[in-house]
Design a protein around this nucleic acid. Structure first.
Length: 391
DNA sequence: AACAAGGGTTTAG
DNA sequence: TCATCTAAACCCTTGTT
């Protein structure tokens, strides 16, 4: 009997999540806010209070303020707390600090994946040679370093894959460090409600409940075919796998696939009367494309009705572009078409509008699809020359 | 049958 | 008038090759 010395090392993934990031940054700017409810808001500019809550500190959260609720509602909830502060988002500042922290994180392991402005995964398997204790030590040092450098607390989860690491980080929030070694995955999952599984939101949870799936354990035992029928051939089986704690998704630096901007219009529109309001969006998208050395092949518009129904219209260009001129002409054309022939207008007016580009290509790099197309074109030409082309 | 494009849904932070 | 903004993954339908 030979010992298999090629046995894969135990994968160890770390999820790092900065606690109530925007609100914590505001607390650092003004430490006297720490004891008071802090609500960071996206004001739409329509009225004094229209808009939504981006993030709130835990003082405000304990009183019932949650991400995404209307600002007006948050004000009602905090009516009895005149010491509350409502601040507008300051993205440039948040971006700057985020960048510095991501720098620290990416120095821990080359296998680094930034998921959002305040979240990242690290695969430390080889760094710690599969030892969870060593990974835990790294996490402790990391937390200390982030406090040292930026005065910020974060929550770290450690697990055998991204899913478990992320759920562990959530579990320890705020200022947590929670470790789930492989042998504890089962009990860790079974102790939690279905809604804590990453990727299962309110709609999916409700649908599962209707199917009689009430716990993560129920889901892990449920008929795969029924899941595939109800949630799709990929998503259904995926849900079952994550309920068992199985997740092979690698920690990889992802590349940007779409760039978009959307705004709330000054007034609801029933015709394309907001061309001027779109100009800054076009400029911004063009800027962001060229800053990342990207060109886009697909140009799209997004329209949100006064009933908050989302509509998309898009078309594909012959040649990828980063030109403001082409972006604005194409988008304006799509808006015109939308208002011209869409009976959707009967559903109501337009509240918000935006632009989105995708089908992104880096300069000098031939996209796989394009390469395929060129080859097909060459073959066609060759065939032509060999048959009809010869005489 | 395989693939592209367009449009919708859900999730997450 | 309660209701932001960005981005990804997936699903479905329709039309081409």
């Amino acid at each position: 009997m030979s010992i298999d010395n090629k046995t894969a090392m135990q994968r160890i993934v770390m999820a790092v999540d900065l606690d109530y990031f925007f609100a914590q940054l505001e607390e650092i700017r003004r430490p006297e806010l720490k004891q008071r409810p802090v609500v960071v808001c996206v004001f739409s500019g329509r009225t004094e209070t229209s808009g939504a809550v981006s993030t709130a500190n835990y003082v405000a959260r304990r009183l019932g303020v949650k991400s995404g609720i209307p600002i007006v509602l948050a004000k009602k909830v905090l009516a009895g707390h005149p010491e509350s502060v409502f601040l507008p988002v300051d993205h440039p500042h948040y971006d700057t600090v985020s960048e510095r922290i991501m720098q620290i994180l990416s120095s821990i392991s080359p296998q680094f994946e930034q998921v959002s402005i305040d979240e990242a995964f690290l695969d430390v398997s080889s760094t710690v040679r599969g030892k969870f204790d060593a990974a835990t030590e790294i996490a402790q040092k990391l937390k200390a370093e982030i406090i040292q450098e930026e005065k910020l607390t974060c929550s770290i989860g450690i697990g055998p894959n991204k899913l478990i690491a992320k759920m562990a980080a959530d579990h320890g929030k705020p200022n947590g460090l929670f470790v789930v070694p492989p042998e504890n995955v089962g009990s860790f999952l079974n102790d939690q409600p279905l809604s804590k599984l990453i990727g299962i939101g309110t709609k999916t949870e409700k649908k599962m409940e209707d199917l009689g799936i009430k716990t993560i354990h129920d889901l892990s035992k449920f008929d795969t075919d029924v899941l595939a029928r109800e949630f799709g051939k990929n998503l259904g089986p995926h849900f079952k796998r994550i309920a068992k704690g199985i997740d092979d998704d690698p920690v990889i630096t992802r590349q940007v696939e779409q760039i978009g901007r959307i705004i709330t219009l000054k007034n609801d529109a029933s015709s394309f009367s907001f061309e001027d309001e779109m100009i800054p969006l076009y400029l911004d998208i063009a800027d962001r494309l060229s800053a990342q050395k990207l060109k886009a092949k697909v140009m799209g518009i997004i329209v949100i009705t006064s009933q908050l129904k989302i509509k998309n219209r898009a078309n594909t260009l012959d040649i990828p572009t980063d030109s403001v001129d082409i972006i604005s002409k194409t988008a304006n054309c799509l808006f015109q078409q939308f208002f011209k022939n869409d009976e959707n207008l009967q559903e109501g007016k337009i509240r918000r509008a935006g632009v989105k580009v995708s089908g992104l290509e880096r300069y000098g790099e031939i996209d796989e699809k394009e390469r395929g197309k060129s080859e097909a074109q060459i073959r066609t030409l060759t065939d032509f020359l060999q048959t009809d082309g010869s005489f």
